[in-house]
Design a protein around this nucleic acid. Structure first.
Lengths: 181, 181
DNA sequence: CGATTGTTTGATGAAAGTCAAGTACCGTGG
DNA sequence: CCACGGTACTTGACTTTCATCAAACAATCG
């Protein structure tokens, strides 16, 4: 059970034709794969996006800790439910939202998670190591289409995105774009 | 923590514009909402499709059982991982597969789950209470498009679907249609 | 029987994918 | 220092997939 200490990673599944779907981005503080607590064989793979440092904990030891310590169990439960909730949101996004909404929501979700952990580089600004093909694989789109929609966001001055840095320039309008339905 | 005894139900999220996304179909033997084990407040809602009977277990009692009994813990872990795996598959389907593939995979998944539980009405035949709008809400499509693709499957004699009963006529070809990429 | 809900079908439109060409940005080696 | 290659990004033309709209039909139920 590794936990990310620094850097970004992703977990994804690969399909037969070479396309892939990213299940989640892993930020500092995230448990790489909470399902590993139960199931040793992973169903997806994990890949570093930036240089990543992590610490690994062993399952048996964690189980002992959890059995002995109710607050550890609660912490574990929080991780589980949070992960579950994020998976459900992704299902809704992929099933029922437009390309622009999916991209905007992905960005907002990442910014919020970094804010919670105090990893921002400004009020609404973060280091943003994702390539457009990462965004495409996470939102179920093509890199070309992602490029067009990001250009559109820039043209409307909702975000600034350059040199691996992202800022939300117009939070209200950008949130609106993320919630159009 | 209710468990379905008979009938079909669904869990879903509703969006602001009235469209909805079905997260999973609940068949006899399914735990309605494993996340309820941790989190009392549900993030989605549950709805009956047919007449449903269920038994409810209370969280506190289950926790005691799990703490005392390692095999109960293992059973719980199985439910959790299975649910997680199904969520991941749905993400991949919605993100990276065509409409026809999504529908075929949904049907195959349901048939397999009923087979595991011995709830089939024939070798490759099941009672099928879903309306086309259920299929649409589960696959992120419109009912109209679902109708067209089901007609296509029928025309190619891959399935028979009438009077709330479904049979897979050509398993090999139907599986191929579910796995085109 | 009428009313409601579900399904089919066709015509049309919008969203996203594909293809292709061109640009910018490195890192490498001469 | 600059040429070279590779990767990422941009942009436009065109195609495909799926949504929308509308009309007709079928089934179900009070």
């Amino acid at each position: 059970m590794p936990i990310i200490c620094s850097g970004w990673a992703l977990s994804a599944v690969m399909l037969a034709d070479g396309s892939r779907q990213i299940l989640s981005f892993l930020l500092p503080g995230d448990v790489v794969s909470p399902c590993l607590m139960f199931e040793p064989k992973p169903t997806c793979f994990v890949e570093a996006i930036t240089t990543v440092t992590y610490r690994a904990f062993d399952r048996a030891g964690l189980w002992q800790l959890v059995a002995a310590n109710p607050s550890a169990m609660e912490a574990m439960a929080r991780v589980w439910t949070q992960q579950r909730r994020r998976a459900e949101e992704l299902i809704v996004d992929l099933g029922r939202r437009s390309a622009a909404e999916r991209i905007a929501r992905l960005i907002l979700g990442l910014v919020e998670r970094l804010q919670e952990r105090g990893l921002t580089s400004g009020p609404l600004e973060i280091d943003f190591p994702l390539r457009q093909h990462h965004i495409a694989d996470a939102t179920g789109l093509t890199p070309v289409h992602v490029s067009k929609l990001l250009s559109e966001f820039r043209r409307r001055e909702l975000i600034r995105l350059s040199e691996r840095s992202l800022a939300i320039l117009d939070p209200a309008a950008f949130r609106a774009a993320a919630n159009m339905r």
